[in-house]
Design a protein around this nucleic acid. Structure first.
Lengths: 344, 344
DNA sequence: AGTCATTGTGTTAACGTACACGCAAATTAA
DNA sequence: TTAATTTGCGTGTACGTTAACACAATGACT
């Protein structure tokens, strides 16, 4: 084990000087500094994590910026659960978490969040940048060198320590593949592009369309729908779709509100009901899966995203490791028979 | 932050006495001990991990006991990859791993492993107890109080710190559900019960059969086959199956050697080829998935099992946390479109 | 009664790092 | 030339825990 003492001996100086070199605190003659750096390299020094943190005795606080836990059918509560689990495990390392929730359907709600963050002493931020513009602004006004990690989505123009998310395009392709596996042509497939539109949702639609390419086995149609705020709009859309096409075989819903479509189609017989594939294993979707109203749910392991996010920030702040720049979350396929093994 | 010093003050003793109480080292008068324990409770003491490990300066070695990394089509290499990732992350915590590989088709190979283990100073063991009897014997002869964690499978009669595995029965039900989703009755389904038989394999078969219950929509048949050692046996079995039944619609293979069945059926046309569902995303199975020769692979996240196993042992040994007694690994469904997101 | 072991308690020196402080020597300012 | 400042380097203490050690008081044997 290489220590400051050993480096000091090799360089013929005291450990105080080595320390000044390591922390770039100046007050070292150039020649001496060179000797010390050489010794550091040769001895392959890694600071002792335990000694450092014992000395520093600091409590680190991670700010968590994400939509309210009740939004999107409880989807965000799943991420939060993973974060809390990680925070419990890391309590011995003097890590704390502090939640700042915004309203993902009200960009203005970020003002208040920004005030709260400004009044708190945070060592790092874990952010779900769902409100693209507001979050970009928030980050721009952050104190210099505040590290931040994105989860759930990405803002490509910024420079986070790491990004944890899923390939939306590929998830669309996966949904298409599953449709093809359980149906037989010919027929019509409907994509419900949920609003408000964002990068994520578009990628899912594009992936689904891309899977079929030029194939004419199925007719694929796309409709936009604001399921979140006014579910009333959904009924006429579905009625038109059911009547308009002779054979509507399947519907792909591009966000967590899949269960609303399932409920709207509940009264149909099993034979005439189109196949349903959507996203995220929230409670309402789980119930529909169990009742056979939804065929597949694609999940992005929100619990694991939260857990990993906290752990990465820990490794970055305390261990001072170089963490992976990007974590790609696997595409999970959920059905009735495996859904319980995917819940916490 | 509660320290030994504060407890000592409150109990009116020195920190030496507090330390003796905390570590049950005796030499403390009963009345004093009671006072100290009271103070500890009242102040809600948590030892400072950094101070402890700085003082101890110990390097912990975890012994990893599992089949050779080339066995079962490279399945075990996936677990090992997860372990190595965890060991890299935990290097700053002075954790080391040491692999002991046995031949899962040769129980005698455990003799040598046991000798090696006896000659190594290990702080804990991470074990894949595939060879039921040999592993039981190994554990019985271990030094008293050596902690061990099982992964991949379980030995219900022993008392590990934790068990990381998957519900085999439920995975069988899942396979059945997927068959039903992609096929249409009537027809025959064949279960290939791979040898050597063990608890795991049986549970998978039972789950598959259980899903159909008394339903007569499909005819479900079961055949035993020693695919591992003599793949030659497979051909006649499949030929009999294909000829014997008018409509063989699907085959369920209960271990990682699914690709051998896929290759044997390669020459058949897409229409006449039965659906194939099997286990574990090893390289050969991935290739078959990609070529459309296998429909679904059920995976048990071997990489994550290895990663978690090392982390749990770390938390048990170094952090001295109470770890979860059982970790249930989710049932992952793998297809062509999501297989790459499930690889490391 | 005297020796010797046992019991109960306090004291202290590490572990490696961070950082304040002290103090010469060199440099600058007056 | 002298005082004041800056530069360069070493010393020392503290962080909280562990475990060896010291030492008195008690109890058990000759």
């Amino acid at each position: 084990m290489t220590t400051l003492q050993k480096i000091a001996e090799r360089a013929g100086v005291s450990i105080g000087t080595v320390d000044r070199v390591l922390h770039n605190r100046g007050r070292v003659a150039p020649a001496t500094e060179a000797r010390v750096r050489k010794a550091i390299d040769e001895l392959d020094y890694t600071p002792n994590l335990y000694a450092r943190n014992l000395k520093l005795g600091k409590v680190y606080t991670i700010g968590i910026v994400m939509p309210g836990l009740d939004q999107d059918g409880g989807y965000w509560a799943l991420s939060a659960a993973g974060m809390n689990r990680a925070l419990r495990e890391l309590a011995v390392n003097r890590i704390r978490g502090r939640f700042f929730n915004y309203d993902r359907y009200a960009p203005d709600s970020m003002f208040e969040v920004e005030q709260d963050i400004r009044n708190t002493d945070l060592d790092g931020l874990l952010i779900a940048p769902v409100l693209t513009d507001s979050v970009t602004e928030l980050i721009r006004r952050l104190p210099e060198n505040t590290p931040y990690i994105f989860f759930d989505s990405d803002l490509p123009k910024l420079n986070p320590v790491s990004v944890i998310n899923q390939d939306g395009f590929q998830s669309g392709r996966l949904a298409a593949e599953l449709m093809v596996k359980i149906l037989s042509p010919p027929g019509t497939l409907l994509v419900i592009k949920t609003l408000p539109d964002d990068y994520h949702i578009s990628a899912r639609c594009n992936g689904f369309m891309n899977y079929f390419g030029d194939s004419k086995k199925y007719t694929v149609e796309m409709e936009e729908a604001d399921i979140g705020e006014k579910p009333g709009k959904l009924k006429p859309l579905l009625e038109t779709a059911m009547n308009g096409h002779s054979g509507l075989k399947g519907i792909f819903i591009t966000n967590a509100l899949t269960y609303q479509v399932a409920k709207a189609l509940k009264k149909l017989s099993n034979e005439s009901r189109p196949a349903l594939i959507g996203y995220d294993l929230i409670e309402d979707n789980a119930v529909c899966l169990d009742h056979g109203l939804i065929d597949f749910i694609i999940s992005q392991r929100p619990e694991m995203q939260g857990y990993q996010g906290i752990y990465m920030m820990f490794r970055h702040l305390i261990i001072r490791e170089t963490v992976e720049r990007r974590i790609e979350i696997p595409l999970d396929i959920i059905t009735r028979e495996n859904m319980n093994t995917h819940r916490i």
